[in-house]
């Protein structure tokens, strides 16, 4: 097996989109190849599958955790020294709100940063094939190809309009 990267010039972005269709016709499903770009393109521009991620779960979990800790801290301290103030209940929710808000924010923010790390697969020491021309505007299509199909896939990408094809074994 080898990793292959087809590079398409920015002004020939249409060729990159055609290449993804050609790959699908050649038996590579939409989940077998990845597209690399130097700046964001509108979703679906290359006919790629919708990217699934769970980033929304992270801030939610963080917020829930932060909120729970804050409620525990405020509730426990009020219960630890039960003193009625101004006729209010011992566990007065309005007084707990600010600290609960802070805990919720802190948890949500920290978990969001963690989630971005995790969902972006960062850090990733085994990152796949890459070429600096991507950040210069080239569009890359990368996929893992069986040795016996290397030539065929390379020809496919070149026929679609790839300016260069790199293979890494």
């Amino acid at each position: 097996m080898a990793q292959m990267l087809g590079l398409f010039r920015e002004e020939e972005a249409e060729s990159a989109a055609n290449a993804t269709e050609a790959l699908e016709q050649a038996g590579y499903s939409n989940e077998n190849f990845e597209i690399l770009t130097g700046s964001p393109y509108p979703e679906g521009a290359f006919g790629e599958r919708e990217v699934k991620h769970k980033l929304y779960v992270f801030p939610f979990m963080g917020a829930l955790l932060g909120f729970s800790v804050a409620m525990l801290v405020t509730g426990a301290t009020q219960a630890a020294y039960p003193l009625v103030v101004g006729g209010k209940p011992i566990l007065s929710l309005p007084a707990m709100t600010i600290i609960a808000y802070e805990g919720t924010m802190l948890g949500a923010i920290l978990f969001t940063v963690l989630g971005i790390f995790f969902e972006s697969r960062l850090p990733n020491p085994n990152a796949g094939i890459y070429d600096p021309r991507i950040t210069a505007g080239y569009i890359g299509i990368t996929l893992t190809v069986a040795d016996e199909r290397l030539n065929a896939v390379e020809q496919l990408l070149r026929r679609a309009g790839a300016a260069d094809v790199i293979v890494k074994r």
Binding site: E34, L36, F46, V51, L55, G115, R121, A127, Y130
Partner: peptide, 19 residues
């Protein structure tokens, strides 16, 4: 670690919104 994968761009966009 940044390679410009569509997945990275998606997480980047959503992450910016959440942060």
């Amino acid at each position: 670690n940044w390679r410009g994968l569509l997945r990275q761009w998606k997480v980047h966009k959503v992450g910016l919104g959440l942060l």
